[in-house]
Design a protein around this nucleic acid. Sequence first.
RNA 1: UGGGUUAUUGUGUAAUGGUAGCACUACAGAUUUUGAUUCUGUCUGUCUAGGUUCGAAUCCUGGUAACCCAACCA
Length: 553
Amino acid sequence: MSEEKNLNFIEEIIEEDLANRKYTEVLTRFPPEPNGYLHIGHAKSICLNFNLALKFGGKTNLRFDDTNPVKEDTEYVDSIKEDLQWLGFKWATELYASDYFDQLYNFATQLISKGLAYVDDGSAEEITALKGTPTEPGKDGPYRDRPVEENLRLFEEMKAGKYKDGEKVLRAKIDMAANNMHMRDPIIYRIKHAHHHRTGDAWCIYPMYDFAHGQSDSIEHITHSICTLEFIPHRELYDWFIEKLEIFPSKQYEFARLNMTYTVMSKRKLLQLVEEGYVQSWDDPRMPTISGMRRRGYTAESIRNFCDRIGIAKRENLIDVSLLEFCVREHLNKLASRVMAVLDPVKLVITNYPEGQIEELISENGPDESYGTRKLAFGKELWIEREDFMEEPAKKWFRLAPGALVRLKSAYIVKCEGFVKDNNGTVQEVHCSYLPETQSGNDTSGISVKGTIHWVSAAHAIPAEIRLYDRLFKVENPSQEEGDFKEYINPDSLHVISKAYVEPSLANAAAGSVYQFIRKGYFCVDKESQAPKLVFNRTVSLKDAWAKEVKKS
RNA sequence: UGGGUUAUUGUGUAAUGGUAGCACUACAGAUUUUGAUUCUGUCUGUCUAGGUUCGAAUCCUGGUAACCCAACCA
């Protein structure tokens, strides 16, 4: 009878607000500053905000928090919109804090008129000095009691460009002794003679975050303004401005940001990785950015699913990246066609197969009929995986070894008759005989073998570059280790195989398409791939029980 | 050492005074023309010390630990 609801704490608040008829419609917003690329942490926030609106029948705005012109750029605006769309979300209205500059200026004037804001001529150092510390109260500065008329005039002059950067600021007049540092007369406007990506040179004063964000929420009638934990101390200020300005009472709620093992999530650190060449770009497949994950072959659905599973709460967390990988495999398992590719090739010669003979075998493309079938060329010489042959087989080994039988996937059972080594002792060829009556689908032999391996025909296979990615860092939580986080970068996070062989059906594979390379993992075609030079990214490996077995002994 | 926030298995997250559940991970087994998938099973938890109560993860009191706050960043 009792329905399991399992609401997170924000959903509970919304449900209560709706029950109390506090709001008739839920309006949330996603408010990125256009100063960088979106990452998986943003995806958590995006899913939260948009899904809340979806769940309770409301809407979500996209609002760019563009109040600091020196850091922001249209390039970022575009990438953010692209990522959001790719993730599968539709915003109700596209807005910019800079659209409200006039109104924000008026709000500031109102505050001055009420005696709640003043122009301070102090330098940054002087202002900081008077601010006190968390354990010591601040002190009132010399400009705090400037008359309203003078403040009004000075603020207007600031706007008119009469002063240089840093010469004056506008401050809210609250309480220099407040426990909350953010209430010690916070700066609300600063002078910046800088070009803004949208307003150009119309302004030389810009509002601070605290004076823009809450008011923007209020202007839009955002009902639930959701942000991360570090903004908790800002909430008192958020409410103060709304109260003094007597505007729509948006409410701020905070949840814990996402942290994930073996990566970093701060824009500053990600920027360093790009700028200092530890990765190639913002969309490097090793990056935790949305664009990096997209390029790596992660699907939007799997990222959304991941965000659902990690939940929303207020406690610090460090999510195991294996959960993300699970979500990716889960989706790709349903999505990806199965094909064969040999990453580390060694020749397999079928000694009793007629020279020059080619057969067309039929192979299924996936676990059920919906995937369809394709033709596979089979011949006397094949490429197989070097690791699928062992001269002296280990315990529980059921791949190729002298005398052993294995099935070549979708083809025949073969028996290993011998092998050829070069002077260095490296295996050059594996020799097998095949059992003609064991053809896949027409097997009349009654023989069953333990191992099945993948292969490609040497005469038909096409070469490809394959990029294997590993975790970017050697430690679970690089940000918490001693010293510079970059000391913990995994030097082997990228392994490029310049000459692998893939089956010919992949010759025209389009960038972005995803495949399962049987027994090797999920791969996608990189954006740099251009026939005849194919490039694949390994999205994620398959689970590997044999690797675990080896590790144990 | 001022203020704020948070503590549930290895990792996340539920349980809103009444059987500590779910997912990932790990481990074991079954099926398998992918050592994959699928299926079955197993392991480990309420930060701590008291108190209230028939009954406490939940309420109260005291401790402890972690995180955040002193940009003219957001």
